[in-house]
Simulated assay, not measured.
Amino acid sequence: MAWRRKIPETDFARLQRWCESKVPPRDRREVRIECHIRGTFVTLSEARPNWSGDGGWTHRKVWQLRYYEEEQQWGLYWYAPRTGRWGRYARGFQFHCGSMVEMLAEIDLYPDRLLCPDRF
């Protein structure tokens, strides 16, 4: 079954540009930031070449954006590798929702979270 993208096209384009801007072109053979979309969920992951050299890439989940169609807002979640679960990203003690621009700005507050192993 093929999954269709159910997010606004403008947000999709913004997300693609954001992912490409995180790693300079000269380093993209060693690391990439990718977005994987499934319906209204967007998973951001760090991708690196397999150690085996077979041409494949390994992916480490880091953040997830979830689009709430009724509110036309995004929610932000962080991945906990030890438990394998997604946790709601909260500003203070309140779950934070907003536009794609706001969510990407929140992610940018933690630059080492994308390209460094398990800082949280």
Results as ranks from 00 to 15, higher is better:
V62E: 01
L115H: 09
W86K: 02
G98P: 06
R26Q: 12
Q64T: 00
Y77P: 08
R38Y: 06
H36Q: 09
V62M: 01
D112L: 11
D11S: 10
P111K: 02
G87C: 15
D108R: 02
R17S: 15
L15K: 00
W78V: 13
R29M: 11
G75W: 02
A105M: 10
Y110R: 11
G53A: 01
E46A: 05
K61N: 04
G98C: 06
K61P: 08
Y89A: 01
E102A: 14
K6A: 10
R17I: 12
A90D: 07
T40K: 08
G87W: 13
W57E: 09
Y79T: 03
A13L: 04
F12M: 01
P81N: 09
R32G: 01
E70C: 04
E102C: 10
I37C: 01
W18Y: 08
H36S: 02
R26H: 12
E9H: 02
I33R: 03
L104T: 03
R28N: 03
Y77W: 09
R32C: 13
L65C: 08
G92T: 11
Y68P: 02
D118C: 10
R38V: 03
M103E: 06
F12P: 00
Q16T: 09
R38C: 05
R38A: 06
V23T: 07
C116L: 12
P49K: 04
P8D: 01
C35T: 01
A2Y: 10
P24H: 09
P24K: 12
E71A: 10
G39D: 00
S45K: 03
G98D: 05
E46M: 09
E71D: 12
C35S: 07
E71N: 12
V62A: 06
L76D: 08
